[in-house]
């Protein structure tokens, strides 16, 4: 079967995934702050105001109405918890936690309720919910609107966590997340919303727990997450001019983790660099390094190198923020140390 593709932005791909799943399944609802926007204001009751602060859910309210695209008060604990309750009783809610940094005000509902409920109930319940949330620095949004923090969630039993890097993966992973019977954290990098790429029409699934080789190479494996995949690809391109061929593994899923993809690439290249925009302590990058040392030790011909953010909050000033975010230059420097 030939499936038509067209070029969509990462933002449009996410919007399309939501639209298709809401059409397909009447139990899918969307809830969050300003996901439609302008609730009860007559002249925008139909089309909504914002469609989310960066327009990701724009116009969904026109098709599905206010009953399924629910603007919430700024009460993250209440509406994330309501998503848990709705999921356990039969809906498939997609809740939007506007910025991941806001998890502090609703974490109990995510990790003590949503994540643990099935286990504590002896497997009698399921919690098919998705929490979409924005991550990442680069916007000048500073300390409380710029973190990644996905390691916090990948650490929690009961949660799944995915972080797509391309429009194609964003659509396929979001459809997979909505259809998944477990709670899934869906991390959207705010600097990727305008990135474009080929996206098939219609529905398709990118399976949760499967990494993707974004570039093949034999000399070093660069494992990267979300926006860092593009930093890694840029580094790989430049390294190629020096005769170093890097393999770029886009992790896509943080929990579960595609250990086989990492290890089989490592078996081939025998060298590993991990690029992660999250803070380094107890991070996904550190977890990948531990995996390499534990299960891939015999493959390793050199130390594992981690290219990460520093152990600081995200700073405001452009010069400071640029310093914070991993760059192709830092990735290249790390590769040069071990190749």
């Amino acid at each position: 079967m030939v499936v038509a593709t067209r070029v969509l932005s990462y933002r449009q791909a996410i919007n399309e995934a939501l639209r298709l799943e809401m059409r397909r399944d009447p139990t899918v609802i969307l809830m969050g702050e300003d996901v439609a926007g302008g609730a009860t204001i007559q002249h925008i009751e139909q089309e909504g105001a914002w469609g989310g602060p960066l327009g990701v859910t724009k116009s969904l309210v026109s098709e599905f109405g206010r009953q399924r695209v629910l603007d919430t008060p700024i009460s993250e604990a209440a509406f994330i918890g309501a998503a848990v309750g709705a999921a356990v009783t039969g809906l498939r809610p997609v809740a939007e936690l506007m910025f991941v940094d806001f998890f502090g005000v609703c974490m109990d509902q995510i990790f003590n309720q949503g994540a643990k409920l099935r286990y504590m109930f002896g497997g009698k319940a399921k919690v098919p919910m998705v929490i979409r949330t924005m991550i990442g620095a680069g916007f000048g949004a500073a300390g409380q609107h710029s973190g990644c923090h996905y390691a916090v969630f990948a650490h929690m039993p009961g949660l799944k966590a995915v972080a797509p890097a391309t429009p194609y993966d964003a659509k396929g992973l979001l459809i997979a997340a909505i259809r998944d019977d477990d709670p899934v954290m869906f991390f959207e990098h705010k600097m990727l919303y305008d990135m474009t790429g080929e996206v098939p029409e219609g529905d398709y699934v990118v399976p949760i727990g499967k990494a993707d080789i974004k570039r093949e190479g034999n000399d070093v494996t660069i494992v990267a997450i979300s926006r860092m995949v593009h930093i890694a690809l840029e580094a790989a391109k430049r390294l190629s001019t020096e005769g170093i061929e890097a393999e770029v593994v886009d992790l896509r899923s943080l929990s579960p983790l595609d250990e086989d993809a990492v290890l089989s690439s490592l078996a081939k290249t025998r060298r590993l660099v991990v690029v992660d925009e999250d803070n380094p302590r107890c991070s996904v990058a550190a977890d990948i390094a531990a995996l390499a040392v534990d299960k891939g030790f015999d493959y390793l011909d050199a130390p594992v190198k981690l290219v990460t953010a520093p152990h600081t909050p995200v700073p405001f000033s452009p010069s400071l923020e640029r310093y914070y975010i991993p760059t192709p230059e830092r990735v290249i420097a790390a590769v040069r140390e071990i190749v």
Binding site: A77, A78, G81, V84, G85, T89, G90
Partner: peptide, 20 residues
């Protein structure tokens, strides 16, 4: 086990009933 853990969840159950 969390004091105040239940009220948002009850809202979710109510939301299910209202939605369906």
């Amino acid at each position: 086990g969390i004091v105040g853990g239940g009220p948002p969840i009850a809202c979710g159950a109510g939301l299910m009933a209202k939605t369906l």
